[in-house]
Design a protein around this nucleic acid. Sequence first.
DNA 1: CAACTTTACGAAATCGATTTCGATTCTGTC
DNA 2: GACAGAATCGAAATCGATTTCGTAAAGTTG
Lengths: 343, 343
Amino acid sequence: MPVTINDLSRKLGLSRSTVSKALNDRGDVSLVTKRRVRQAAKALGYQPSAAARNLRRQRTDKIGLVLNYPFYRVSDFLAELIPGMATAAEASAYNLILYTSLAGNAQRVKSLCRSRELDGIVIAWPQALGETVALSRLLAEEEMPHIFLPRRLPRADLSYVATDHESGARMLTEHLLQLGHRRIGFVRLPEVYETDADRHAGYAKALKAAGIAYADELVLAADSSAADYGERSFTAFMRLDEPPTAILFFTDPMAIRALSHARERNIRVPQQLSIAGYDGILPSGVTVPSLTTVRQPAAHIGKLAVESLLALIADGSREARQHILPVELIARGSTALVPGLAS
Amino acid sequence: MPVTINDLSRKLGLSRSTVSKALNDRGDVSLVTKRRVRQAAKALGYQPSAAARNLRRQRTDKIGLVLNYPFYRVSDFLAELIPGMATAAEASAYNLILYTSLAGNAQRVKSLCRSRELDGIVIAWPQALGETVALSRLLAEEEMPHIFLPRRLPRADLSYVATDHESGARMLTEHLLQLGHRRIGFVRLPEVYETDADRHAGYAKALKAAGIAYADELVLAADSSAADYGERSFTAFMRLDEPPTAILFFTDPMAIRALSHARERNIRVPQQLSIAGYDGILPSGVTVPSLTTVRQPAAHIGKLAVESLLALIADGSREARQHILPVELIARGSTALVPGLAS
DNA sequence: CAACTTTACGAAATCGATTTCGATTCTGTC
DNA sequence: GACAGAATCGAAATCGATTTCGTAAAGTTG
């Protein structure tokens, strides 16, 4: 049997109240007594029962992360995000609980809230805006502080941490423009979330700023999110009368597939064609040539999400917290000067 | 304010005891009453308070995963392992709590145990056997069911889930032997844990079974765990009078570094030299040539670890549970017939 | 020195469930 | 119709802390 506060109080000849107050450093206990209590607590290895404490204080010092299975695809992101969140939580004396089989089931999220085992929730599952708004309302009704990840949401009342995909796409495009490219292919994703629109906007704005006309035939939308659209879009681009000299792929896996497809067709990258990806997953660093891409600071996202959530908890969820983090352009070997300009 | 069992009992005109027993499907409540109670609970959206329930039942239905920072290196492994564990836990109505800043600090682990917020712990941090044994004893004293990950431990009283690195190394070696290689280099790690000894044993046994003498000059021990030992050992091997025709690297990052080093020196892989790695991280699939390696079933390890731990919890931790999972040989483009035999 | 304030501590309520045990009602049997 | 036993239900204890409020002792003030 573990030692409880009763054992401590009995051994010290003090009441439970005094022991509790001494350990929690309240004002109405003398310094001498505090010292005595603390020494005894240390000697007996006393640690308050989490359950009893949670029940009485109506808080658990725990936050939840609700994950969705599809996220597995971006394993690098997850492997950084999750420990990053846990570490940030622990730095503030909180802990992180993982939920992998809750996503998409609002009813079970509601039950989770009502069991009051969490002080706040981070929601990381991709869904349409309408569902996000509905979920947020449900959580608000349950008075559960919450924050969404990792997407920018076009509503002032929703809290989220996202990355600036528009500027990411813009940086990539400008990078290629500086290398002399004028015909730049762009591959979008079919699932039209904000990320796609953002990246596309970044691409379009960079072109416009450079005074280059937007060409419809240079923008393809994948009909599936599978990596093999990398090859298919590649082929489609090459069939154009005037093919692009550089291609931006929406995801690294697509770009990597395109790389090997180019190799098979004896198209040299980057000498004849520049290729870039997006996300900065680990494999992008070891392809030949290594892939130019954009990387999200996953650990930082996690840290910021946790800190924002804790702020919401402390605030009584007064106002929404929104953060958009900059992304990092990683210029590597798969992009180079446009063929005509090469020395 | 959320609805409590008192609200329910008042609304139904029943005592708290009866309501509780009805919801927990005890025998001494009539079917009619059970139905009434359940309908009311559903209608009011009643969910028992986790804290109150934990306090009374002296269990939390939660397990912990204590992670160590160095594990970040093998991000693929983590990204599969952690969600795998969480999912397995949820399948048994448990949840997973992450601890990233506890590893190496036995005192804090002890405090964690005494706060009784966990029913069991999975320890995933690399350490010397002596420390593992000491930690296990500490946990046993606290009556905390626990299991170690992901290493084989040479003690009958410790519970663990590991993978069979001996057979992994053996499979790799035999794969090369079948391709006609007779001089096979092997790069060990300096931190001498069981994994290293196991893999080395697998290598040695495969050679012996094939009737090939073990050559000391073909086995190098890295003086650091850094990936750049991939290049250094590569260079050392190539300086031998009779260099190996194939090299087994202890980790994928080393092997990948060796691949690009070979490319720079115009040594064609696999035509002139075969190279293999270990761990099956994602990047190994996209190198040119793609890397022959061995993959650990991380999600499966996590699932099995959780299931074993839950069994220990149910058992009252009677006897240690030990599992050694098979690994998978992934033969890819970096290994081929020995040069002399090539057609 | 009376009146008042401050200091230090304890009794008891409370958080919200589960569980034990006792009381009552109902059923069935002879 | 009496009685044993089964079926239902509730009162109260319990889990282990925190917090409110009351009280006695000590200190302060004019």
